[in-house]
């Protein structure tokens, strides 16, 4: 589904990631951990074609990202839901339209989604905030709206970058529960986080592999997590 083979990524003259080989199989659940600045976000961006590797191969749905046109990558992003820590929305549109944005850009409009959109808003607990504008949302509401936006196209993969970074413990558990539910629906989930307590809480609910970035390389984390 998403495969990185001997990938290196350099930026500003320095190598940020080196010899990375990761394979996200369908239906798997991964955590990506490591200290701040280790390259978690960079690795995530490589996984959805926002960055191109300096060397090595990134295969998104079996297509080498280097061979893809920009519009091809856009199409692939419709199959990959992404949630960032610093979520960005179109601030002039209500939450409902922001959540439906992936449908809009793919030519399927929110009206057509109808009940599905309502159910999704209810699933993330934002039914009564549907008409609010993004700046009016709290940190937790923004993350949940971002999650709803990431999954509205029923993507095969969900990538979340520090999804609980700006929310309290209770909200982080709620978000984790939503991500675990997605995995149980068959979605592949990769969460980049430095929050070890979140990983421990997840391992109690789902079989997750934990990848740790250390010294520019990725290794499978041990049982200490």
């Amino acid at each position: 589904m998403i495969e990185l083979e001997n990938v290196a990524y350099s930026y500003g003259g320095g190598e940020l990631l080196s010899d990375i080989s990761v394979k996200l199989a369908p239906g798997s659940f991964h955590f990506l951990t490591g200290p701040s600045g280790a390259g978690k976000t960079t690795l995530l961006k490589l996984c959805y074609g926002a960055l191109l590797p300096t060397s090595g191969h990134v295969r998104l749905f079996e297509a080498d990202v280097r061979t893809l046109e920009r519009d091809d990558i856009a199409m692939i992003r419709r199959k990959v839901g992404v949630v960032h820590q610093d979520v960005q929305f179109l601030d002039h549109l209500p939450v409902r339209d922001n959540v439906a944005l992936p449908l809009t850009v793919s030519g399927r409009h929110a009206e057509a989604a109808g009940d599905d959109l309502g159910e999704l808003m209810a699933w993330v607990g934002l039914t009564n905030r549907a008409e609010a504008l993004p700046p009016e949302l709290s940190g937790g509401e923004r993350q949940r709206a971002a999650l709803a936006r990431a999954v509205i196209m029923s993507p095969d993969v969900v990538l979340a970058d520090e999804p609980t970074g700006n929310v309290d413990w209770e909200m982080s558990q709620r978000l984790l529960k939503l991500l675990v539910e997605l995995n149980r629906m068959g979605k592949t989930v990769l969460i980049a986080t430095h929050d070890l307590s979140l990983i421990r809480a997840a391992k109690a609910q789902v079989q997750a592999r934990v990848l740790r970035i250390s010294n520019r390389r990725v290794q499978l984390a041990g049982a200490d997590l």
Binding site: A50, R70, D71, A74, M75, I76, R77, R78, V82, H84, Q88, F89, L90, L101, P102, V105, S106, R149, M153
Partner: peptide, 16 residues
């Protein structure tokens, strides 16, 4: 630029 970034993130093509 933020609008463009959001649109790209959700799969909008450059043409769109």
């Amino acid at each position: 630029a933020q609008v463009v970034a959001v649109l790209r993130l959700v799969g909008a093509t450059d043409r769109y």
